[in-house]
Design a binder for these strands. Structure first.
Lengths: 153, 153
DNA sequence: TTTGGTGCAAAAAGTTTGCATCCTT
DNA sequence: AAGGATGCAAACTTTTTGCACCAAA
């Protein structure tokens, strides 16, 4: 995954101005393992920047996505962003934890197997696996046990 | 894919009232191969029902999705619906044409290959292939040829 | 100094909700 | 006749746009 400096570097090299706010954005994404919604980014940034506006957050997310330093995914509940993990250009997919939204790489790519039927020209594909990582699975079970205990009172 | 009568049947059996509007909705989805946006459904229905309101379309789409007669997918550009094609419960994936948005079944499922790393509990997966079907590929090429000819004038 | 970035306001687009009325059952 | 379905209006959420001002380069 990209570091703060790598993100800043790409942005600077592309001619973008490095404002304090963008530096903080870069750091936020470099240090987050999971996906962030525009709203959560806005809330986080808002603590530091009094009078921050939503449109600036959107503008920066969009610019950073176009530059390739951020990746966006459309979840059922909306658009989310994370730091790009394609710095070496290696194609891969993700398992996405529904508990903490951290992602884990899958190096297997189904496109090596699925051949296009009837002259279908493939331009793109999406392979995502959703579930619960080791930690969140344990938490879920702990909660279930607690619930069940409560029910027996 | 479900037929008009199958859709109506499910809705009726679940205790929903079969209004003329719902009958038309069922027919629309039964006869469309691709995905429809709420907006396009509204526009189509609006031609027949003077004074149709957007919220009724949304309510019906939501109800039909909950009943399982419609499937919804979140695309980059928004939510879309199509008639369910899981009537026989057979698990499969889709190739989705970026030109006409028709879908073609893929019977290969990558989950038989990708084993979950490190105790990841899989609950769900998404495998979608995007591209151009035979027809739309030809149209694209025709357009490209026309463009290029224009450029040489 | 210049151009791009930001905040503010407003608009636009998409979706949901409350309520009175209508119509299927 | 009764309760679900609809239209209407309005609210709400998310995202975009125009403009004046400020700041990075």
């Amino acid at each position: 995954m990209l570091t703060t400096d790598e993100i800043i570097g790409v942005m600077s090299r592309q001619g973008l101005r490095i404002t304090d706010q963008r530096r903080t954005l870069a750091k936020l994404f470099a240090e987050s393992d999971g996906y962030l919604t525009p709203k959560s980014v806005y809330e986080y940034m808002g603590k530091k920047y009094k009078g921050l506006s939503f449109d600036t957050v959107y503008r920066n997310l969009r610019v950073m996505e176009e530059l390739g330093v951020l990746e966006q995914i459309v979840f059922e509940d909306g658009l989310k962003f994370r730091a790009s993990c394609n710095e070496d250009g290696h194609h891969h997919h993700h398992m996405i934890c529904l508990g903490c939204e951290k992602t884990y790489p899958i190096h297997f790519c189904p496109m090596t197997f699925a051949d296009a039927p009837d002259q279908f020209e493939v331009v793109n594909h999406k392979f995502e696996v959703f579930g619960y990582c080791k930690n969140c699975k344990n938490n879920k079970e702990a909660v279930a046990v607690a619930e069940s205990a409560k029910g027996q009172q």
